[in-house]
């Protein structure tokens, strides 16, 4: 197994030589994952693009880790030369989610950043225009945030069809029929 990961290990070494603070993990063959800090991201990414062959910006993902009060931005890069996929993971403070835009490196980064801005509320410094992409006149919480309640939104926005009010919950029907009172305990976990 290890012998097959020579290329991956070499990239890890190279990255660490250039950026000591990058936490590089070889996930598996053709996958490396890098934890990095937001501050000098453009320099790091541009190093990967210009010197390490990660030319292809696959996409930029955002994951809301509400319980940590953080957003995680994941920059997916692909090296056509080495056939290796790198995931660059950056954690941002949810209350002050700001990071530098990569739109000067890749034209389509602009689109991804626009979407993340409107869906999560992350601010991209230096972006040419963080205008609406998919949404229109949206004033609510950015909807892809975990604390945006889809059900509540649907209940407010749409009308439920009539004629299904007689639906019953099986478990409750059974417990009512047999006089069983299901206690409510506070879950520890």
């Amino acid at each position: 197994m290890d012998s097959k990961l020579i290329k991956e290990q070499e990239i890890k070494r190279n990255i660490n030589n250039a950026f000591r603070s990058a936490e590089v993990t070889v996930v598996r063959r053709r996958r490396i994952s890098v934890r990095f800090r937001a501050g000098i991201l453009p320099a790091f990414i541009s190093y990967l693009k210009e010197y390490m062959g990660f030319v292809h910006l696959v996409m930029i993902s955002c994951v809301d880790w509400l319980e940590d009060n953080q957003f995680e931005l994941v920059y997916h890069l692909w090296s056509y030369e080495e056939h290796i996929h790198a995931m660059i993971k950056i954690r941002l403070d949810r209350d002050n989610a700001q990071i530098k835009s990569l739109s000067s490196l890749w034209p389509h980064a602009e689109t991804y950043e626009r979407e993340i801005h409107e869906m999560f509320g992350v601010d991209f410094e230096g972006h040419p225009g963080l205008t609406d992409l998919i949404l229109e006149d949206w004033s609510d919480l950015p909807p892809m945030r975990r604390d945006f309640d889809t059900r509540a939104f649907v209940a407010e926005t749409f009308e439920w069809r009539k004629g299904r009010e007689d639906a019953q919950d099986v478990r409750q029907t059974i417990s009512a029929r047999y006089g069983e009172t299901i206690p409510e305990f506070k879950k520890d976990k």
């Binding site: 299904r164 639906a167 019953q168 919950d169 099986v170 029907t173 059974i174 029929r177």
Partner: peptide
């Protein structure tokens, strides 16, 4: 939805409800 249907009685091993 699980609903009550005429002619189906709840009994041991059967909630008496049927899907709609």
């Amino acid at each position: 939805d699980m609903i009550q249907i005429e002619g189906i009685e709840a009994k041991k091993g059967d909630s008496g409800l049927r899907p709609r």
